[in-house]
Simulated assay, not measured.
Amino acid sequence: MAEVVSPITRQITKGELDSQDPPVDIRLQKVEDCLVYDRRGVPLPFKKLYQDRKAVIVFVRSFLCYSCKEYVDDLAKIPKEALEDAYIRLVVIGQSAYHHIEPFCKLTSYPYEIYVDPERCIFQNLGMKREEKFTQSANPSPHVKSGVFVGQMKTIWRAMTSPKFDFQGDLYQQGGAIIAGPGSQVHFSHFDMNRLDHMPINWLLQLAGVQQTLDFSNKPKILHI
């Protein structure tokens, strides 16, 4: 029988699971009625995303951002069966206009739920960080493969070639991730300190109850025979 993981309701960093950071007070009641919008512009109260089952909810800073794009590239690789077996939802929330959702999903091959919070109601009321802070505890995301210079060039090129030239979100706003539900219970939270401070996907999945560990590396696989 698998070991039961106790709910985690404090901020932690990737470099140290036993971080001494103070607890993060997450109150979903402040944001449960904030509206998010699907790819057709249909509004939905935020609470609908986690009321009936546990949900892993990832907030991204901008659909143009190369690090967000590469992180969602890896979210797209999560097998549907892994989520179904653990009875959890995977949700991505951006902060652009809704018409940017469809092109972003095509670019990343992301097949799961995705919404936008164009007024940043949830980002702001949950206290997600604005501006970037780089510290030793904020380790670079294992899911971002591009270097900073190349990544920024990709971001600029996508902005220039976008049908509607805008930054698809506030570039100063940072994202994060929470595991919530069913109901208003928050099991875990992580607020990004900068564009590279993503929570490793395997950690999120295991904390949410997914049993299998996935390989997101681009390294060639070695077969032992």
Rank of each mutant, 00 (worst) to 15 (best):
M1D: 14
M1V: 14
A2M: 07
V5G: 00
S6T: 08
S6N: 08
S6C: 01
P7I: 02
P7M: 02
T9F: 02
T9R: 10
R10M: 01
Q11D: 07
G15C: 07
L17D: 12
V24C: 03
R27V: 02
R27M: 03
L28A: 04
K30P: 00
K30W: 05
E32A: 12
C34N: 13
L35M: 14
L35K: 15
V36N: 05
V36P: 05
Y37R: 05
R39F: 14
R40F: 15
L49S: 02
Q51C: 01
D52L: 01
K54A: 09
A55T: 11
I57A: 01
S62D: 12
F63N: 06
L64D: 03
L64G: 04
C65S: 05
C68S: 11
C68A: 12
C68T: 09
K69W: 15
K69P: 00
E70W: 11
E70M: 10
D73G: 03
L75W: 07
A82W: 09
A82Q: 13
L83K: 05
D85Y: 03
A86H: 03
A86T: 10
L90F: 13
L90I: 09
V91C: 14
G94T: 06
Q95R: 11
Y98C: 11
H100C: 13
I101Q: 09
P103T: 08
C105W: 01
L107Q: 15
T108W: 05
S109A: 13
E113Q: 15
I114T: 07
R120F: 00
I122Q: 10
L126I: 08
K129T: 07
E131H: 14
E131I: 09
Q136F: 13
Q136G: 15
A138V: 00
H143D: 09
V148N: 05
V148K: 10
G151C: 07
G151R: 08
Q152F: 05
M153W: 02
T155D: 08
I156Q: 06
A159N: 04
M160D: 00
S162D: 13
F165E: 01
D166P: 01
F167I: 12
F167T: 14
Q168E: 14
G169Q: 06
Q173I: 08
G176Y: 04
I178T: 03
P182V: 05
G183K: 04
S184F: 04
S184G: 02
Q185G: 04
V186F: 02
V186E: 01
H187N: 06
F188S: 04
M193Y: 14
R195C: 09
R195G: 10
L196M: 13
D197V: 02
D197M: 05
H198T: 02
I201H: 03
I201L: 08
I201F: 06
N202I: 12
N202A: 11
W203H: 15
L205R: 06
L205V: 07
L205C: 03
Q206V: 03
V210E: 04
T213V: 11
L214P: 10
L214W: 11
L214V: 12
N218T: 11
N218E: 09
H224T: 11
H224Y: 10
H224I: 12
